[in-house]
Design a protein around this nucleic acid. Structure first.
Length: 593
RNA sequence: CGGGGCGUGGCGCAGUCUGGUUAGCGCGCUUGACUGGGGGUCAAGAGGUCGCUGGUUCGAAUCCAGUCGCCCCGACCA
């Protein structure tokens, strides 16, 4: 490809709106252009990269046993009502309601429903399982706040795979294969990643991993043990319980007047105590049911206790509550933060003055203390009386602990389960693998007959990769002051030939000869044949980040050489034009690994 | 959805507070000349309903009201 015949609108100036490096560089390198918030056109250079990443993804998912198909973005709303995800997705689900014929149509944000609809129609027997189907397709999500260029957009390219298995062991096997495929994909894309335990949250399921790229441009956080033994999304990170600091003497329980001071910060400032010496008491409304779907739901409360400097992790809490409730042979219908009114009724005080003393004994109250409550002494907490707190609170003497569990988020200073200090890092999620279980097959009645002729729901897994995010994440991970440094495997072109003076016939002849030779070998080569000064071409070459640069100039040709430089190297090598093809082919095959 | 900022040629900005000839500057673009190893020089050009609507005024990029859009922080995020 010759530069003058292609379309690479590079720019010296950085657009004011672009903040993160990948966004700035993609615009400056002429890879993308914004059409609206969260909507980007991929210009030819950007699109070449996207296609290369897509192809790597395709090859690896195929290798892991995936079968490619293609589903529509336009979907009937009814499909989403079957799984109640029309509600769950909320405003993120793009609904087309302008014209009568579009009523009840949505643009797919993901395809669990669509794929399950296919599978339930055709898969009837255990003999047809397991099967993994996937597509690489455009997704639509009306993100409330698109940001950081291509990192968070309303329309994006996603590889979404769905596995269907007869049992858990079979799902585990597929999951592991996909997990390995993901690792290979990021490796081939030259993207340094961390696989972390992810929160499987309300959906249930027993395993979920996210693939993260550590960068300041990210919007998620992961925690990692310093010794490398542990990595997880902050949403789910487990921590070592704090050590007991001990205390010299047990103080008297005392009530103190704390008018209108209902926050941890206010009270700790007022009483001159540390937030970690306070017990935060949060009240949730718990609805349970025993004995099947027809039985009457029962209202109750969950009182969650954490230290003042900690936050309750709702996901951890709901898992603990679920386990306790199920142990009693009941099931959880819902668990939500209580409104002001029921809190006042329960505590006999305004919101902000709740405390554990006397609460656990009340009817329908399930008290769950975080593990780090256990080691508190002379604590401060709400008095269950408006405008009052109590100090000198001690467990055992003043109130009894109910259930004890890890129900909080990790914070700076925490340690991993093995005692290694935890490090918090900002990151971008570039992939997520998930054991779904039977959530969708139950809701949509996707059943199969097993060896005994018994009908069972198909066990599902889903596996997503954001193709555009890989692209942006690679730039975040691989750039310098001068521009992008593309890894060979996904570079838009592998080689850029810089012809230094297009008026010199011998220069252009040699440049074109090398271009043709490389192209004949199937190597993606870009020849900068513009009538521009050398410095201008070098700057552009660095900006668009082609991994191998070959400079053809009169000076070198007089010596019988051309110059060879890799984007990430400093030194330039003088090389005979005859050996260029061989050297490039070697680099390409080494990268392909 | 809360808080903040910004809309002036393709890009980056000045001008707005304090209304007043023809709306400027840099980059880029066109033409010509020179130049030619890290974003050159000179000369001559093309390109703008100042986001949109309404209002105030003799007169609005500038003041007022409304509206649309974009960016950042936060909340939210299968």
């Amino acid at each position: 490809m010759k530069w003058t015949k292609f379309f690479i609108p590079t720019s010296k100036e950085t657009p004011a709106d672009a903040v993160v490096p990948s966004h700035r560089l993609m615009i400056r390198a002429g890879m993308i252009r914004q059409l609206a918030a969260g909507s980007y056109s991929y210009l030819p250079l950007g699109y070449r990269i996207l296609r290369k990443i897509e192809q790597i993804v395709r090859e690896e998912i195929d290798r892991a046993g995936g079968i490619e198909l293609h589903m529509p973005a336009l979907q009937p709303l009814e499909l989403w009502q079957e799984t109640k995800r029309d509600e769950a997705m909320g405003p993120t689900l793009v609904r087309l309601t302008d014209k009568p014929f579009r009523r009840n149509t949505v643009l797919g944000p993901t395809h669990e429903e669509a794929i399950t609809e296919i599978v339930r129609a055709y898969i009837k027997s255990y003999k047809q399982l397991p099967v993994t189907l996937y597509q690489i397709q455009t997704k639509f999500r009306d993100e409330e706040r698109p940001k950081s260029g291509v990192l968070r957009t309303r329309e994006f390219l996603m590889k979404d795979a769905y596995s269907f298995n007869t049992d858990k062991a079979s799902l585990d096997e597929t999951y592991e294969r996909m997990y390995q495929a993901y690792c290979r994909i990021y490796d081939r894309c030259g993207l340094p990643f961390v696989a972390v335990e992810a929160d499987s949250g309300a959906i249930g399921g027993d395993a979920s991993h996210e693939f993260m790229v550590v960068t300041d441009a990210g919007e998620d956080y992961l925690v990692r043990a310093e010794d490398g033994s542990y990595a997880a999304n902050v949403e789910r990170a487990e921590v070592l319980a704090l050590e007991d600091e001990g205390c010299s003497e047990m103080a008297e329980l005392a009530e103190v007047h704390t008018p209108r001071l209902s926050t941890i910060e206010d009270v700790s400032n007022f009483l001159k105590c540390r937030p970690q010496d306070m017990i935060k008491t949060l009240i949730y409304r718990l609805v349970t049911r025993s004995g099947g779907k027809k039985s009457k739901p029962v209202d109750g409360f969950v009182v969650a206790l954490v230290r003042g400097n900690h936050e309750v992790n709702d996901s951890k809490l709901s898992k603990v509550v679920k386990a306790i409730v199920e142990k009693k042979g009941e099931e959880v219908v819902s668990l939500e933060m209580a409104e002001a009114e029921p809190i006042q009724k329960l505590t006999q005080a305004d919101v902000g003055f709740a405390g554990p003393i006397g609460l656990a004994e009340k009817d329908g109250v399930l008290m769950i203390a975080d593990r780090d409550i256990v080691t508190m002494h002379n604590a401060v907490t709400g008095a269950n009386k408006t405008d009052y707190h109590v100090t000198g609170v001690n467990i055992g003497r003043d109130f009894q602990l109910g259930e004890v569990a890890d129900i909080r988020f990790a914070v700076e200073g925490d340690k991993a389960p093995n005692g290694s200090p935890l490090v918090f890092e900002k990151c971008i999620e570039v992939g997520h693998v998930f054991k779904l279980g039977t959530k969708y097959s139950d809701a949509m009645k996707a059943h199969f007959l097993d060896e005994n002729g018994k009908s069972k729901p198909i066990i599902m897994g889903c596996y997503g990769i954001g193709v555009n995010r890989i692209l942006a994440a690679v730039i975040e991970a691989s750039h310098d002051d001068n521009g992008i440094c593309w890894p060979v495997n996904i570079a838009p072109f592998t080689v850029e030939i810089v012809a230094l003076d297009h008026r010199e016939e011998q220069v252009m002849t040699m440049a074109e000869k090398l271009h043709d030779e490389l192209e004949a070998k199937g190597i993606d080569v870009l020849l900068d044949d513009r009538d521009a000064r050398p410095g201008f071409k070098f700057k552009d070459a660095d900006l668009i980040g082609i991994p191998i640069r070959i400079t053809v100039g009169k000076r070198g040709l007089d010596e019988g050489i051309v110059e060879f430089k890799q984007r990430t190297d400093d030194e330039v090598q003088k090389i005979s034009p005859d050996s260029i093809v061989e050297i490039v082919e070697k680099i390409v095959s080494e990268s392909a690994g």
